[in-house]
Design a protein around this nucleic acid. Structure first.
Length: 583
RNA sequence: GCGCUCGUAGCUCAGAUGGAUAGAGUGUUGGCCUCCGAAGCCAAAGGUCGUGGGUUCGACUCCCGCCGAGCGCGCCA
């Protein structure tokens, strides 16, 4: 409908231009928005206001001129000029009835579109280091990314969901060594666990598996493990301490055994993460290994390409990428003086690889703490000859967990954190998913555990689900009373009260809101839409009886209720939230 | 110090590309079930949109200064 009105206005403007009432070189962006108040019609446009200056006419005069040239259209009953120069459109009720029909016909597909047809888009999200189970901090990115991916798919994009596994860094070595030290303890060695090691219980679990599968094969004495190691904090350097331990582990175990320990830790944790995410309703199409980049020579290739393009120089024994040429605030090292490539070099290679895989658009969902990397990654893409704007980075702010009015603080290293699994088991999948996407992603958010846990009216997720359950209940009631509504022949013109008209209009807005949410990468728009929809349904439900003796009216109302249920279901599905028939 | 994100009702938050009277939820107060699910509905109260300037027909929205919060500024990953 919005599009129809848009076209009408465009046509009117063309005519005015042909008649030379308007100059032909106008720069117009026609804006049609749903009206806020029924007295202002169904849709409103501010073109006259926006164009008044360019046209050299008073807004209201221009508005009248536009209206005079608007082609007539069955779907529009009335057009008015109002306020400072708005053009208000009153849509005919038949148009609304057609919407209800369409929803019932299209079912799960109502709201879908072809906007992104033929375009490949990648959404990379979560990508947490596999050094421990996911915690609640990762949940927001997971829920946001999964919902965004669903939205993009719904509007026709070919979407690939990817998880970048950081399996090559120092953190992984710290994890591997932490596992090995715990294993030594299980073998009977007495050790003082490094303050910088991973202390969570899961490290013990992996160590136990290691011991079960390998017996004492990897046992070395505590004295050997700690030989020549720098002192730990508080008196020593805890970073140096753990690095020395890693080096000792490598020496004592040899490559093969060391890799066995390392890989067991990696494989176990990636698996834990995969299972946690699946239970959270989030599935990935691909798990991309950072190590595979170097295995396949992609990092060297990326650096060579930068070099060939003349964007690399050597200084102080290291190789630097001159990212300042592309808007970064300082140049970045890609290869250290010890010959090792940096994490950033991997990132360059990874993004190069993404675009080489044919994605027209790549969306990275990052925690807000990574914002400092945007400039350098984009710089590298430009330097390699890619279009940096094809990489879109969506930052997700942290969510602070609150319980009993107090903030819960967390630390991965110490093992003190609420895991995503605990959260889900605590508040339930629906509430967890819903709470995470309820707010705009870049907004700092307080996650109220008590509220999420609450199975009461205070919990917003139930508000939507309750509306859906009520609709299903109406059908059950019909069954109990041996009434079988006939939807296809429903006389929808019987839906004439204000509640019904408001509800129908809201239903008609769904496809547009989905498109806006997808285009602007704002899943919370869907949440807001559904709350409005549920609110309109509840109001109507309270004001009118559905199951009435008048069969015509009854069928019409049940048709509208059913259509509402369908839209609620479609919206909730996008967010990974269930639409229960009873609750 | 520099940079990024943000600041809207007591609390938690919506308000794209500037548009009509700044909106929900929650909390407070008062109503509504002999009736399809009261996990619901209706109403009232609640605001200097952090602050001071600027741009214009019009600013929560754009520009500049200041205040406050979170995060980031490694040859770590």
């Amino acid at each position: 409908m919005k599009q129809v009105i848009n076209d009408l206005i465009a046509q009117s403007l063309r005519e005015l231009q042909q008649d030379a009432q308007l100059s032909s070189d106008l720069n117009v962006n026609i804006q049609v928005t749903p009206a806020k108040d029924p007295s202002q019609g169904d849709f409103a446009s501010n073109v006259a206001l926006a164009l008044a200056k360019q046209a050299g006419m008073a807004p209201r005069v221009l508005a009248e001129a536009i209206v005079a040239r608007l082609p007539t259209q069955d779907s529009i009953d009335r057009i008015e000029v109002a306020g400072p120069g708005f053009i208000n459109f009153f849509v005919s009720s038949a148009t609304g009835h057609a919407v209800v029909q369409r929803i019932l016909e299209q079912g799960d597909a109502y709201g879908a579109s072809e906007q992104g047809r033929g375009q490949k888009i990648q959404v990379e999200f979560v990508s947490a280091n596999p050094t421990g189970p996911l915690h609640v901090g990762h949940g927001r990115g997971a829920a946001y990314g999964a919902t965004l991916a669903s939205l993009l798919e719904f509007v026709g994009f070919e979407v690939q969901k990817e998880y970048y596994v950081n399996d090559a860094g120092r953190q992984m070595h710290i994890l591997g060594t932490s596992v090995w030290l715990r294993y030594l303890e299980l073998c009977g060695e007495t050790i003082v666990f490094p303050s910088n090691g991973y202390q969570g219980d899961y490290v013990w679990d992996i160590a136990a598996t290691l011991h079960r599968e390998n017996g004492d094969d990897f046992r070395r004495s505590s004295e050997q493990a700690f030989a020549g190691v720098c002192e730990d904090a508080p008196d020593g350097d805890k970073e140096k301490h753990i690095d020395d331990l890693i080096e000792n582990a490598r020496q004592l175990l040899g490559t093969e055994a060391y890799d066995t320990v390392f890989d067991l830790a990696l494989v176990t944790l990636v698996d834990v993460i995969r299972v946690d995410l699946a239970a959270f309703g989030v599935e990935f199409d691909r798990w991309f290994s950072e190590r595979s980049l170097s295995d396949e020579g992609l990092i060297e290739r990326a650096i060579t390409r930068l070099q060939d393009n003349g964007h690399v120089y050597r200084e102080g024994g290291a190789l630097w990428f001159r990212s300042t040429d592309f808007g970064d605030e300082k140049d970045r090292v890609v290869k250290r003086d010890n010959g090792q490539t940096t994490y950033f070099a991997s990132d360059i290679a990874y993004h190069m690889n993404k675009f080489d895989r044919g994605f027209g658009k790549v969306i990275n969902i990052w925690g807000a703490d990574h914002h400092g990397y945007i400039a350098r990654v984009k710089a590298s893409l430009t330097a390699l000859g890619y279009e940096a704007d094809d990489l879109e980075i969506q930052l997700v702010q942290f969510a602070n967990l609150f319980e009993k009015g107090e903030k819960i603080s967390m630390s991965t290293r110490s093992g003190e954190f609420v895991t995503l699994r605990q959260l889900r088991e605590d508040v339930g999948l629906d509430a967890a998913r819903f709470f995470y996407v309820m707010r705009k992603a870049e907004q700092h958010m307080d996650f109220d555990l008590d509220l999420a846990r609450e199975q009461s009216s205070d919990n917003p997720v139930y508000y939507l689900q309750y509306a859906h359950a009520r609709i299903c209940s109406v059908w059950r009631q019909c069954g109990d009373r041996c009434i079988s509504p006939s939807l296809p022949e429903a006389r929808l013109e019987r839906l004439d009260n204000a509640h019904e008209q408001a509800l129908i209009k809201q239903l008609s807005l769904f496809p547009d809101r989905v498109e806006v949410a997808a285009t602007r990468r704002e899943p919370h728009q869907v949440v807001n839409y559904l709350r409005e929809l549920a609110n309109q349904f509840h109001s109507w439900y309270n004001a009118h009886q559905f199951i009435v003796d008048d069969a015509e009216l009854r069928d019409a109302r049940i048709a509208l209720a059913t259509a509402t249920g369908q839209v609620l279901r479609n919206g909730l599905r996008l967010m990974g939230v269930s639409a229960p028939e009873k609750m």
